[in-house]
Amino acid sequence: MNEYHPTRTPAWILLIMRELKFLLAVWKTNIASAMEYRAAFIAQMLGMILNNAVYFIFWVIFFDRFRDVRGWELSDMFLVFGVAASAFGLAAFLFGNAFYLSEIIARGRLDYYLSLPRPILLHTVASRSISSGLGDFTYGILSYLASGYCTWDGFGRFLCGVVLACMAFTSFMIIVHSLTFWLGNAAGFAGLALNAMVTFALYPVTLFEGFSKLILFTIVPAALMGALPAEFVRAFSWGALGKLFLGALLLLGLAVLVFHRGLRRYESGSAIQVEV
């Protein structure tokens, strides 16, 4: 006799679905909160697009004068800027608290997240949306469209690259901010690290060789935010995708490890706080 066996969804898929549902609810609340002040929300978004455009004019003037830097041209600059800006914007918009983690730890504001039954790190970083991030994200797409590498499959690779670069960047931010558990307050250091990451991600990667290039893949993994995803967008290669994926995954693993190690040292606090 034939028996009907319904297909059972594996437990790990159910777990991911569960957390995604929760994440979606947090993001919806974030966006609702950001949109409470409609004019400020739109002004921040448009302001950031304008800000990026003004900054990029420097590179337009530079490449108009020098044509290329070790084979790196203006179109490459558009592409790398597109990936990095979108990745940065996505991180700011979806994981805004990754930029404020030091302050959250130092002021004892993890209490709120610790008293709720959700993954503490994910819940914390996803609980703030920086409106200007949407401006960065949009500017990144515009920059990609202007790069000359624009095709349908290229756009798919662009989105994939942006997601992995965002993962690497957010993880890096979590790692440096988590040092607050040991240093007391790592906000200043995290600010320096953020600047280094963004600056090096936007520089032509052909400028770097040997040891300095190694640093861009390890200590300040800016290559995972700019050069590597840009290379993947330019032309599909398993090598570039593999390096990008592995790099982002390693950084994420390290971020989770460092944060949870530090959490044992968390001391809470009694400052008055609000969820915004």
């Binding site: 609340t29 909160s33 709120y112 400052a271």
Partner: peptide, 18 residues
């Protein structure tokens, strides 16, 4: 008492839903 859970800029019903 010193650590509100309700989202400051949103109506309380939104925090309840969350």
């Amino acid at each position: 008492g010193q650590r509100p859970q309700l989202w400051y800029h949103l109506p309380a019903i939104d925090t309840f839903s969350l």
